[in-house]
Nucleic acid binder design. Structure first.
Lengths: 348, 348
DNA sequence: CTGAAAGCGCTTACAG
DNA sequence: CTGAAAGCGCTTACAG
């Protein structure tokens, strides 16, 4: 901000007091005679003065800002983030909770990416979504004693207490049950490759379930960075299997779109031949043909939980109540519903 | 952030140079012998040093942060903001555009609200969505020469060049045409009361259109702060009119929900007796019974536009390309569609 | 109750 | 190419 603003010294001069008195008047620290306070406030408002949070932040080591870092490596390729889906909702909800309690929320670049601005380290506390295995950023936050909260655990450090539970096993159960209810008997998993809890814990639970049921474990991998094309490839791989699955749980929305696109292009009927559920809802799933059932990850509830968890560390006395997510709520669309139904909202 | 971090002085000491040299090494200002630079960088990485953006921001009057202020008066009652709709998508998209160009995006409280933290004034530039009439904040931003961009104009200052066009008249035309296409012949408007372009310009265009067509102008008002209850009241008012309208354009989503709820509770069939379009899409409209048609305001495109507009002022050389919104795209749902269709996604 | 002074970590003329 | 020093706007012991 243009700093031709007046400073605490201008106010002091105008009110005929010291800067200490001005500082005390606005901060509420120290004791200032009410009459003096009135003079100070009058001078301040004549000058249009307001305290500089940067200067005060430098002095107090407290900026009034919670940082939100999107991993993995979003700083490097933010364009990969889908605009309309998980992240904006998460961030917006976290911001609201922060603002309600006097903090700003800052969306910052991943500071471990070289060349990225290190704005993250200016924050009073940090939310990381989602941490990767052996996360360098988390290690730094810990060693610098920065309050932090992780959304989903570091898979190699499952006992970190500063984690918002994303309930991956429970979600996996609900999805597999849903596929089974929709008539699938042979279930495959299309997983991402980022080393995050979501991917790892989903696969683990999927394998457990298949083992318990005495079914074959069919897991394919698609890199998150390759988007829809990797989903199309997964479709080919599935169709090349000696025994085709008739139900697929595909975690990432772009993969799911490519997958369904690929299946349909090869003459497979969705859902009649193969049922598909995507692990993360997105607008593009709603408007796909056929539309694709998905898990509502409830980014709003998670965003509020995450902000609240950091705020509790910053201000232990705060009375923070935020909604609990209903983990694994499934949004039913054509890809797991009888084909006769019309589910997609039509567009103008 | 906990500031037991090492400082530029520690690095200087360890590398056996002055702080000037360390500063120059990291900032790229001045000229530093490559061998010296190497020593400095080695010392820095041994100490885990990284520059403090707050200190540097204080010194340079540049923090690398774009602020986003939500008006009217969201700081006072952030809980009124609907979580899942316009704002998070707008903010998320603006953040991505900012991060892509080295800036953080900070969601800040309205600094004109007394008692609110004035973090906004720490930002290098500000996005305001949406400005109110004679906006005090805008006046301050202007007088302090802070780069800013408004999403929608201040209705009393339509010629401000720093405005992202939200195309309210064009949107209004599309909605009224849509209602007419759906069979409505007598159109009413349920407007909010906040003094923002969206409300004012919609009403103005609606009245023009009714006048041109020789139709009665039927405008009801519902306060944004009163949410769904105000929508229910609007339903009663509409039904009490000597001649009922058969098409309603209701701007705010909570009002639209209350309106439809009220109409249905009183035995009115929607859309058969009265067609309803909401001016701002929201998740709650999709899941309402009947589901409610709405305008997709394209918050992602607007968010990117707004961030880009501020970035262009901050860094004139940046090559910024962001998508243009398709203003007034209508999402067709049951409230303006033949009742026989099934449009709502079913839930698990 | 009020004020003089040091210092938060950095940047930037300026002198060498 | 390198360094000593002033200062960004504030806060906070400390003395009076």
């Amino acid at each position: 901000m243009a700093r031709q603003r007046s400073t605490i010294r201008d106010v002091a001069r105008r009110a005929g007091v010291s800067v200490t008195t001005v500082s005390h008047t606005f901060s509420g620290n120290g004791v200032v005679n009410p009459a003096t306070q009135a003079r100070v406030r009058a001078a301040a408002s004549e000058l249009g003065y307001h305290p500089d949070v940067v200067a005060s932040g430098l002095r107090k080591s407290r900026l009034g800002v919670i940082g939100l870092v999107l991993r993995p490596a979003v700083g490097e390729r933010p364009q990969d983030l889908s605009d309309v889906d998980y992240f904006p909702r998460f961030a917006g909800a976290a911001a609201l909770t922060s603002l309600e309690h006097g903090y700003a929320l800052m969306l910052v670049a991943d500071p471990t990416v070289s060349g990225a601005p290190v704005t993250a380290y200016a924050c009073d506390g940090i939310v990381v979504t989602d941490p990767v295995a052996d996360d360098v950023l988390v290690a730094r936050l810990r060693s610098s004693h920065t309050p932090y909260t992780l959304v989903g655990a570091d898979v190699n450090d499952p006992d970190d207490p500063h984690v918002i539970d994303i309930a991956t096993p429970a979600i996996t159960d609900r999805v597999l049950d849903h596929l089974t209810d929709a008539g699938a008997t042979r279930l495959a998993l299309v997983n991402g490759v980022d080393p995050i809890e979501w991917n790892a814990a989903t696969e683990q639970r999927y394998r457990e379930r298949m083992r318990e049921a005495g079914r074959e474990e069919i897991v394919l991998y698609a890199p998150e960075t390759e988007g829809r094309a990797a989903g199309v490839r997964a479709a080919d791989e599935l169709l090349a299997l000696p025994q085709r699955p008739d139900g697929v749980y595909c975690l990432t929305s772009e993969h799911a779109r490519g997958l369904v696109e690929g299946l349909v292009a090869r003459g497979v009927r969705v859902p009649d031949d193969i049922r598909v559920v995507c692990g993360s809802d997105a607008d593009s799933l709603r408007t796909a043909t056929p539309s694709i059932s998905s898990v509502d990850l409830q980014p709003e509830a998670l965003g509020r939980q995450a902000a609240a968890a950091v705020l509790r560390q910053l201000e232990p006395d705060l009375d923070l109540r935020v909604p609990e997510p209903d983990h694994g709520r499934i949004i039913l669309r054509e890809s797991t519903a009888p084909a006769s139904r019309e589910d997609r909202p039509r567009q103008d």
